[in-house]
Design a binder for these strands. Structure first.
Length: 418
RNA sequence: GGGGGAAUGUCCCGAGUGGCAAAGGGGGGGGACUGUAAAUCCCCUGCGGUAUCGCUUCGUAGGUUCGAGUCCUACUUCCCCCA
């Protein structure tokens, strides 16, 4: 799997930082990346208006690619999104309208602009939408053009298919065709933009390989596949999924403060790996940080949080998030940059029930949950545990114009009258 | 086309005898211990209420019953076997 003797900067970096799980033609790709500029792409779904932390590793691959002097292509799955991603099985796949999809893509693009440099230059990133070509395909045309290049025999050998069949779970014809559409994407990009490499998560290996083979078979051109390891936390949980929901990348869906906190709360065992994957810090610096003993590893986590936040939200936001966290956690003080919930001043004068306030501030999902939280000792008002969620909060409780509400040790919200 | 099964707490898996807000896991939340970590232990996990109260839940729609997740009918979806 791993070919240790890469000569190209790109693959050396990718390997050293832990991005590589499988490569289809390692030596050939290495030579291509060493001798010239290669163009590579990663496909992304357009089902939501923001990508999340789970997509970050793919985004970072494109960033590394560009840093190494190559050209990244971001493929938005506008066309495939229309069909609906079949792998998200039972979930009521809501049918997105063209306008929804276009809106999502525009929103997602703002994130890519943080990680990549877009433009018309030879190594500038470009964003394309597979709806542009997929939706024009006629069924007969599709079958005649691409059908002969795939055997069902072979398609049945792919893990994604095999597992379903072995477990006797249904596999729809739509899903069965998904890999063909992805292969067509690769071929199209190769022909029109000279794309030679598709990257993605390890679960995409089969799909990517189909594209590689289609390009090689139909056009006798070089095409490569590169996948990343499946990213889980050290304790085996999927990256970026917490109770609070997905860790979104768009600031309007997840604040820089919360994003910083997400990285700050990484497990010890993940710190080094995350630093290599998700920051631009030099490897020797990372080696030093991850070797910090005992509680000192927290320093490394702060670096991780600040670096990751800086990359996505910028220097100013990263510093504010770091400072707010320091105030709140290390000095027990308050920072104006903590998450804030605004309440009409008149309501506070009259008094608001604590449970209602906690729900409104997002600390609890329902009043019942707020009550339980309070009874368990997890709800605090101005750092004092408050077992009675029915208590009425008035503006008399305010210190410096705010009341500090916390649920557990990590969730803090400032209530501010307006 | 015929026959047989299955859908459960809207995160997942999964028990369920006509009296059930419904066993048990996982996941998640809180507390203790720590370092905003892991591991461990304890508590909580449908919504609302100051109470041993009310409301809403077991694929959908009807029905039987004082009472239905549990019985009957139709429908939907999925799986298996035969053709």
């Amino acid at each position: 799997m791993s070919d240790p003797a890469f000569k190209s900067d790109f693959l050396q970096t990718m390997q050293a930082r832990g991005y590589i799980h499988q490569i289809s033609h390692p030596a050939e790709l290495d030579a291509a990346a060493r001798d010239g500029t290669i163009t590579a792409y990663v496909g992304f779904d357009a089902t939501a208006s923001s990508l999340h932390v789970g997509n970050l590793i793919s985004i970072m691959m494109l960033r590394r690619l560009q840093q190494a002097g190559h050209k990244p292509v971001v493929l938005m799955g506008g066309g495939t999104t229309k069909v609906g991603d079949p792998s998200g099985k039972d979930e009521s796949r809501k049918l997105l309208t063209d306008a929804d999809i276009a809106g999502n893509i525009a929103s997602i693009r703002t994130v890519f602009e943080k990680f990549l440099t877009f433009g018309d230059g030879p190594t500038d990133a470009v964003m394309v939408n597979n709806d542009d070509w997929l939706s024009k395909l006629g069924y007969i045309e599709f079958l005649r053009e691409y059908g002969p290049h795939f055997t069902v025999n072979r398609m049945l050998t792919f893990d994604s298919v095999k597992l379903r069949l072995e477990r006797e779970q249904p596999l729809t014809f739509l899903e069965f065709n998904y890999m063909l559409m992805q292969a067509v994407d690769f071929l199209h990009l190769n022909r029109n933009r000279g794309v030679q490499l598709q990257m993605g998560g390890s679960d995409q290996w089969g799909n990517i390989i189909n594209g590689v083979e289609l390009v090689r078979r139909m056009d006798q051109k070089a095409a490569f596949a590169l996948t990343t390891p499946l990213l889980t936390t050290a304790s085996g949980a999927k990256m970026g999924k917490t109770a609070a929901g997905a860790m979104w990348l768009n600031a309007d869906m997840l604040s820089p403060y919360d994003y910083w906190q997400f990285w700050r709360n990484a497990e010890d065992a993940d710190v080094g790996r995350f630093l290599r994957l998700f920051t631009d810090l030099p490897l020797d610096e990372i080696a030093r940080l991850e070797a910090l003993p005992g509680a000192e590893i927290n320093e490394a986590k702060k670096v991780l949080a600040t670096e990751a936040t800086r990359m996505l939200h910028g220097e100013a936001e990263a510093q504010r998030a770091a400072a707010a966290a320091q105030m709140a956690f290390e000095q027990g003080g308050l920072s104006a940059d903590l998450p804030t919930h605004e309440v009409p001043a008149a309501d506070l004068t009259a008094g608001v029930q604590l449970a209602d306030l906690a729900v409104a501030a997002g600390l609890a999902g329902s009043k019942g949950e707020a009550r339980r939280l309070a009874q368990g000792g997890g709800l605090r008002v101005n750092d004092k545990a408050e077992p009675d969620a029915n208590r009425i909060i008035t503006d008399a409780e305010f210190v410096d114009g705010v009341v500090k509400l916390s649920a557990g040790k990590k969730k803090i919200v400032l209530v501010r009258p307006v």
